[in-house]
Amino acid sequence: MIFLRYILLPIVPIYYLVTWLRNILYDFGIKKSVSYNFPVICVGNLSVGGTGKTPMIEYLINLLKDDYLVATLSRGYKRKTEGFQLANIDATAESIGDEPYQFYNKFKNDILVAVDANRNNGIKQLQLIDKQPDVILLDDAFQHRKVKAGFNILLTTYNNPYFKDIVLPTGNLREPRSGAKRANIIIVTKCPKDLSEAEKNSILKQVDPETNQHVFFSSISYSNSVISSEATKAVEDLEDFTLVTGIANASPLVHFLGDKGLKFEHLNFKDHHDFSKQDIIELNKRALIVTTEKDFMRLKQYESLKDKLFYLPINVVINDEVRINKLIKDFLKIKL
């Protein structure tokens, strides 16, 4: 795969030019973006792969849900439905996608969860319901420039920052690095918990933010317990289990469990893996399965796995929560 990417290096300038030109057309108003007179917050990235968008959306939900009616709007990647869908008690990972279903499963009594590949139509439909949301969180919509979000949060990982990358197909960027200028906040995610001030300053220089941009650093905090549909186990009590992951980058999770001295087999599937009947047959042979919360949303439908399937919750820890929370809430005060 890596070799193929280098073979495709001559295509990089073409991809760069096409995406750069697309952005120019939007920047100069030749292609139209729709803006809204209420708060729309976009969480996204420049690269393909996992930068931590789902935990960041959940961070925002927890920050805002007590004071505002929050709606999340995603495209519903790999769902088996089309058009606008508003999650209800009949929702599944197949009907709205695994990440939106995770939002609904955790916050169904507090927020609205919707999916639509056409974000403008999704926003329009949310405005038509009886109880309209006060704020809409757009999940993975940084490149969806038909919507002009009022506030953009751009995520980039510590190990693979956008400023050291190039565009597809050889690199991982969906658009040129200059796209980062559209962000209000840039968060370097999945940082080591002991990241020094000197290294933060070095990264900050490489980000080279605009005067109106704010840069933060975040890390992943894993729970001390794993959770099933009916039970909880302490991580330190896990023995000879199978770790099942279908995410973009499972390395941090593998390292966390390995550092605990735990022994486990790792079945590593591609991101948003659609588990087949054969996959489930194989998983049924395992005595104990630990997975991510996103994968749990797709696997918990199988009754045969019910007693052996657990997920490990995670949270985002941001280096200066007071400041980032104030920036977000100040934006809402202006728009509402």
Results as ranks from 00 to 15, higher is better:
Phe103Thr: 03
His255Ser: 13
Leu336Ile: 14
Pro100Trp: 00
Asn212Thr: 00
Asp295Ala: 07
His272Cys: 13
Leu64Ile: 09
Gly246Val: 07
Ser228Tyr: 03
Leu86Lys: 13
Val188Leu: 15
Ile187Arg: 08
Ser95Cys: 10
Leu46Ser: 01
Tyr162Met: 08
Asp259Ile: 07
Ala93Lys: 09
Thr291Glu: 12
Arg182Phe: 01
Lys277Leu: 13
Val188Thr: 14
Gly52Trp: 11
Glu82Met: 12
Asp271Phe: 07
Val34Ser: 03
Phe264Gln: 11
Tyr162Asn: 03
Asp194Tyr: 05
Glu236Asp: 15
Leu195Met: 07
Gln102Lys: 07
Leu46Ile: 06
Thr245Ile: 10
Tyr104Pro: 01
Asn319Ala: 00
Asn249Tyr: 14
Val226Asn: 13
Leu73Val: 09
Ile57Gln: 08
Ser196Ile: 09
Val18Gly: 03
Gln132Asn: 06
Glu210His: 03
Thr156Gly: 05
Leu238Tyr: 02
Lys308Cys: 08
Gly258Ala: 04
Leu138Gly: 09
Gly44Tyr: 04
Lys181Pro: 01
Val317Thr: 13
Asn201Cys: 08
Val135Glu: 02
Lys164Val: 00
Phe38Leu: 08
Thr54Asp: 01
Val115Asn: 01
Leu253Lys: 03
Lys108Leu: 04
Ser221Leu: 15
Lys106Cys: 11
Phe28Arg: 13
Lys53Asn: 15
Asp194Ser: 15
Ser74Asp: 11
Lys294Ile: 02
Leu288Phe: 10
Pro100Met: 00
Gln278Arg: 11
Ala149Gly: 06
Gly76Leu: 05
Pro13Arg: 12
Arg119Ile: 14
Ile203Glu: 03
Asn249Gly: 02
Val188Phe: 05
His144Glu: 06
Val322His: 08
His144Trp: 09
Lys65Cys: 07
Asn249Leu: 09
Tyr59Arg: 12
Gly49Ser: 04
Val290Cys: 07
Phe241Arg: 10
Gln125Lys: 14
Asp295Arg: 11
Asn268Thr: 06
Arg286Ser: 15
Gln85Leu: 10
His273Arg: 13
Asn159Gln: 14
Asp90Gln: 13
Leu112Cys: 02
Glu236Ile: 12
Leu253Ala: 08
Tyr158Asp: 07
Thr156Ala: 10
Glu293Lys: 12
Tyr6Gln: 11
Lys53Pro: 15
Thr92Lys: 02
Pro100Asp: 04
His214Ala: 00
Asp307Ala: 01
Asp110Trp: 01
Leu17Lys: 01
Pro10Arg: 05
Leu8Gly: 08
Gly171Thr: 06
Gln132Asp: 00
His214Phe: 05
Ser223Met: 07
Thr54Arg: 08
Ile187Gln: 02
Phe84Val: 04
Cys42Ala: 09
Ile328Tyr: 00
Leu60Gln: 00
Gly76Arg: 02
Leu9Arg: 13
Ile227Gln: 14
Gly44Glu: 08
Pro252Tyr: 02
Asn88Glu: 02
Ala91His: 04
Ser251Tyr: 09
Ile247Phe: 04
Thr232Trp: 03
Gln85Asn: 00
Ser33Ala: 15
Asn160Met: 09
Ala198Phe: 10
Gly83Val: 03
Pro176Lys: 11
Ala183Cys: 05
Val147Thr: 11
